[in-house]
Design a protein around this nucleic acid. Structure first.
Lengths: 345, 345
DNA sequence: TTGAAAGCGCTACCAC
DNA sequence: GTGGTAGCGCTTTCAA
């Protein structure tokens, strides 16, 4: 059993009161230079480390935030290298401000966030919630500062960090059109397209696609929607559908991961990219530059996304004014080798 | 300001003492069925949630463990999808036992682990330390239970979870030999090969490679060591070196990630795989099945690795007997399409 | 400039 | 069975 050294031990040995030690430790209150010196030396000698949980009992702050990620949603966690960067961004941002993060995987349908209350977390960052998830209501009931990432929730009171998905999608589609493609398939994910509006990110990207078509005077064709999961396997399967669609010369996939599956599928079918099909992805994973051919994609800075979310959360916690509750990060189109000229150029 | 409801409020409203409430909450001590009922109803009504930090002040346990990952080591964090699975394994294992994890990125050279003491963490899981890192000494000084993952530290007192890297490497190399390859290049990482023994994982894998050669009576040729980072870019560069090595028909890369870079490099040079070169990787990332051709590799169960580490840590914390301080997880050779027959078959 | 003391929410011991 | 109460390690008035 490690013998804990407390503020009392320090006070005793330094011959001062615990109040004084507390003042020295926190740099608050007043203390003479000599007292400070003396106390600090004793702290050093004893190897005293302040007990944060105890301090928090008084101050009512834990300097701890929860990062909540749904574990059960298939094709997200397991599949996407994405999350690691996000996490790194959040961790880094928190560290800069002396916060630590508690990582919690939840089952979206049953989680009550009791742990957040029990541990008296200062705030929560929640990733990838669906609008209709009951979890969001429960999270808000906590009365804690919460920031949602990639969730596209209607309620404008909620703090959110998202990507400019619609713009990204618009730019990707426009680029294909500019390259002379007209019939552009879309790998939208494993959802009913008629209810796409409740799938935030996907909906936005779908709208961006339509924006571009409309601008170019191309009719939207529901036949071109491929409803398969945005995963490696989903992309792979999608290649089967793709080749059956007449006159299609390009496909836009809502994630790089599925675009990779797609590339593999097409290669196995002997279809050349970008010769017969132009392919464009979304995310710009670190690996996307290394596919063959290298993947044209919409780039998002995932690290920055994590950082923006912590910033917004911590400002909220510190009671600092928040400029905007809904932060939208910019996207960038990265043209590489999977896109080429279409028949109309 | 959210009005905190404490044990006192519950006690008052239920007309019992706080001691009784505490008993009910913890299911300890004795209490009549009717009291229990009454108290529980009040808890419900008031929405009371126990304050864990306060409880921990008494019990001297936080039920919190730190997961420590070096942030500064290039080519690890950023590059490797690997970590996400590990994290997921740890989180899940912890959750099962009512622990939470605090994620901390550290700079290996300067970290003092003060946060672990301050927050009174119950234990630490540390990933990917190098033998000569000062951080390991500092971590041990804390006097906390610690488990190292992927660190291969000499000290047999330390708790460690590793992979059977040597065996994995042996099997990969043996397989290539059995397929008729004799001159097998090795992408070992960006390190001086003469000091490889201080790079745990790499050393083990290097030994496994030599084991296989020796068994087959093939002389070890230092010329075949390619010293480039085990990253996408490193693998890509490695292809340049590879093609200059005479008579080499196969290459074993110490990570899938670098194998992917390698595949791209070779393809760009017009070298066929597995026609001209057989390629074998290590890790079996979820994406490795989707490269073209799909990657033959040594598989490790990363999720399981994380789980094993928590289990070992929590048993330590709970004072349960630990069978073995050094847990070695099995590997598996997954033969896919990047390996084919060599000239000697 | 310093110290005494109250109290944060909880557990655990000991009386009743 | 139940309650009183002494701390756990700390911050923070308020006095001195």
């Amino acid at each position: 059993m490690k013998q804990e050294v407390s503020i009392v031990d320090v006070a005793k040995k330094a011959g001062v009161s615990i109040a004084t030690v507390s003042n020295v430790v926190n740099g608050k209150g007043r203390a003479s230079a000599s007292t400070i010196q003396k106390v600090q030396r004793v702290i050093e000698e004893l190897g005293y480390t302040p007990n944060l949980p105890a301090r928090n009992l008084k101050t009512r702050r834990t300097d701890l935030i929860g990062l909540v990620v749904p574990t059960m949603e298939p094709g997200r966690l397991q599949d996407n290298p994405f999350y690691w960067d996000l996490l790194a961004g959040v961790e880094e941002g928190a560290r800069d401000r002396k916060f630590h993060i508690i990582l919690a995987g939840i089952d979206e349908s049953t989680e009550t966030f009791a742990f957040a209350k029990e541990r008296r977390l200062d705030g929560l960052i929640i990733v990838g919630m669906n609008e209709r998830s009951q979890a969001i209501g429960r999270a808000m009931e906590l009365g804690l500062p919460v920031v949602f990432i990639d969730s596209y929730l209607q309620d404008s009171e909620l703090y959110q960090v998202n990507l400019d998905d619609r713009m990204g999608s618009y730019r990707a589609t426009s680029y294909l059109i500019a390259q002379g493609h007209r019939r552009i398939a879309l790998l939208v994910g494993d959802i009913p397209v008629d209810r796409i509006s409740s799938y935030g990110v996907l909906h936005e990207r779908w709208l961006g696609y339509k924006d571009a078509l409309e601008e170019a005077g191309i009719a939207y064709d529901p036949q071109l929607m491929i409803k398969l999961p945005t995963s490696l396997e989903g992309g792979y399967q999608a290649s089967n559908r793709l080749v059956e669609l007449p006159d299609v010369t390009a496909i836009f996939s809502f994630s790089d991961i599925s675009a990779m599956g797609l590339l593999k599928g097409l290669r196995e079918k002997g279809k050349s990219v970008p010769g017969e099909y132009s392919v464009i992805g979304f995310d710009n994973l670190f690996i996307s530059e290394y596919t063959s051919p290298s993947l044209t994609t919409v780039s998002q800075n995932i690290l920055e996304k994590g950082q923006a979310a912590v910033r917004m959360l911590l400002d909220q916690i510190d009671g600092q004014p928040i400029e905007e509750r809904r932060k939208i990060l910019p996207v960038d189109l990265i043209v590489r080798e999977t896109t080429g000229r279409g028949p109309f150029l």
